[in-house]
Computed example of a mutant assay.
Amino acid sequence: MAGIVPNIDLLNSNAPFGLTFVYMFNDTIANIVMAAMVISCFGALLCWQFTLSRVFKSAAEHGYFPKVFARVNSNDAPVRGVFILLAVETLLTLFTASDSLREQFEVLVNLAVVTNVVPYVLCILAVPTMMRMAGVAESRIKRSNYVFGAGVIYCLYAIYACGFDAMVGSAVAVSIGLVIYVLRKAWATRKAHRLQQSID
């Protein structure tokens, strides 16, 4: 886009890609491209919504989320979970609302990036332990640690690049998730202990 559209126009535009195609071709081509991008975004959001609902369903089946997320209809679709997640996402969107749609989009993207990178870091840190449990030679694990270290450094850089606000927001979200997980785990353990006592 830089070099095609004047920088001041890019800075003040809410649709820089569409503006670029206006400069390259005409308004009609730009509208077609923007419509295709909107359709693509809807498709990506729908795919993500269905994927997320399945993740919550699996977690609910293992007791990490309320059972409502595990309920499915006759087509094996977790419809209730989809609507609950949609309501939560709508509330989060309203909380981050701003006068500029672009700024709101950037806030949500940065928040999502940091929140999603944290599990990647945890997974990377768990790989050496998993390799030891699988009986992999210690020398191979030590060589792999360089790759794991590079992955962690890159993830930390991605978190840093998202900005301070995204880091704070994600820290709050992850902290809430950890508290819920600990409370849920403690409740499940206590319930299992009471059940065992009643059997004995």
Rank of each mutant, 00 (worst) to 15 (best):
F69M: 05
F69Q: 01
F69L: 04
F69K: 01
A70Y: 00
V72A: 01
V72E: 00
V72Q: 00
V72W: 03
S74K: 10
N75W: 04
D76T: 03
D76A: 07
P78N: 08
V79C: 00
R80S: 13
G81I: 06
G81C: 09
V82Q: 09
F83R: 12
F83H: 14
I84T: 09
I84Y: 11
I84D: 02
L85I: 13
V88F: 11
V88R: 03
E89S: 15
E89K: 10
T90K: 01
L91A: 12
T93P: 01
T93A: 15
T93E: 07
T96D: 02
T96C: 12
A97L: 15
S98R: 07
D99C: 06
S100D: 12
S100G: 11
L101G: 02
L101S: 05
E103N: 07
Q104R: 05
E106N: 11
V107N: 03
V107S: 02
L108G: 00
V109E: 02
V109Q: 05
N110C: 08
N110P: 07
L111F: 08
L111H: 00
A112I: 07
A112M: 10
V113G: 05
V113C: 09
V114G: 05
N116W: 12
N116C: 15
V117T: 08
V117P: 00
P119S: 04
L122P: 04
A126C: 12
A126E: 13
V127L: 08
T129K: 13
M130T: 05
M130A: 08
M131G: 00
R132D: 06
R132M: 13
G135M: 07
V136L: 10
V136F: 05
E138R: 14
E138W: 08
S139I: 07
I141H: 07
I141M: 03
R143D: 09
R143F: 09
S144K: 08
N145G: 02
N145I: 12
N145S: 14
Y146C: 07
Y146H: 09
Y146Q: 01
V147S: 05
V147K: 05
V147L: 14
F148E: 04
G149R: 04
G151D: 06
G151P: 00
I153F: 10
Y154V: 08
C155T: 01
C155V: 03
C155A: 11
A158M: 14
A158T: 14
I159N: 00
Y160T: 09
A161D: 15
A161M: 11
C162D: 03
C162E: 08
G163S: 12
G163V: 08
F164L: 14
F164M: 14
D165Y: 11
A166P: 01
A166S: 08
V168P: 03
G169Q: 01
G169P: 01
S170D: 04
S170Y: 00
A171R: 05
A173C: 03
S175G: 15
S175C: 13
S175N: 07
I176A: 09
I176E: 01
G177M: 08
I180G: 10
I180D: 12
Y181P: 06
Y181I: 12
V182P: 06
L183F: 15
R184K: 13
R184N: 11
K185M: 10
A186F: 11
W187I: 10
A188K: 11
A188P: 02
T189N: 13
T189P: 00
R190Q: 10
K191Y: 06
A192D: 13
A192W: 12
H193Y: 13
R194Y: 13
R194I: 11
Q196Y: 09
Q196N: 09
Q196V: 02
